[in-house]
Amino acid sequence: MTSERAVHTPFEVSNGLREMGQAIRAARLRRRQPASDLASRVGVSLPTLRKLENGDPTVSWGVFARAVWVLGLFPAVRDAVSPENDRLAAAIETGRLPRRARRPREVNLDDL
């Protein structure tokens, strides 16, 4: 028997999951797609889809990915997490740039 420690979900994560779930629900409704149809296309039960739309953190990443793919939102999600859109990493890299540029030293091959 394995014991699992309870992991506290930070408020920002809980809130973000709830917002993403609401966005998935809104996308489904805007497409006039019944929940049972989306659940079937995603390959999950209706209660699992409801959990996803409510932002339940126990819903798997795969279910989320399939749902946004079925709704046509996958490219936007993929773009949101692409390295090119990682502002924090860009700021860190910018902070590591040298203060000034110097010409490279010329190497005299005769001295080698």
Rank of each mutant, 00 (worst) to 15 (best):
F74M: 09
P98V: 10
G62V: 08
G72T: 09
A67Y: 02
R18V: 04
K51E: 04
E93C: 10
G55N: 05
E19C: 00
R5Q: 12
N15F: 02
A39Y: 07
G43R: 07
R30W: 06
F64S: 02
E93W: 05
L52W: 04
V42Q: 05
T48W: 02
E4Q: 10
V59A: 06
G95M: 09
R41Q: 15
R102T: 14
A101K: 09
A39H: 10
V59K: 01
P10H: 04
L73T: 03
W69A: 15
A76H: 09
L88G: 06
A101R: 12
E53Y: 02
D111P: 00
P34W: 03
A91S: 13
R31E: 14
G72R: 09
R105M: 04
S60E: 10
V107M: 06
D37L: 11
L73S: 03
L17E: 03
F74P: 00
W69D: 12
M1T: 05
S3C: 00
A101V: 13
V42C: 10
R25Q: 14
I24S: 07
V13E: 06
F64I: 11
T94M: 08
L112S: 03
S45Y: 05
E4R: 07
A35T: 11
T2F: 03
P10K: 04
P34M: 01
G43E: 05
D111A: 15
S3K: 01
G16D: 04
L73P: 00
A35D: 03
S3F: 08
E19R: 05
M1I: 06
D56A: 07
R87W: 07
V63A: 10
E4N: 07
L73I: 02
T58C: 02
A67C: 04
P98G: 11
H8S: 06
A76S: 11
G43W: 07
K51Y: 13
P75W: 12
A35C: 03
R18H: 12
S45V: 04
E4K: 08
E53H: 06
N108V: 14
V81G: 07
E12N: 02
V70R: 14
V81H: 01
G16W: 01
L29I: 15
E106T: 13
K51L: 02
W69P: 00
Q22T: 08
G21D: 04
L49E: 04
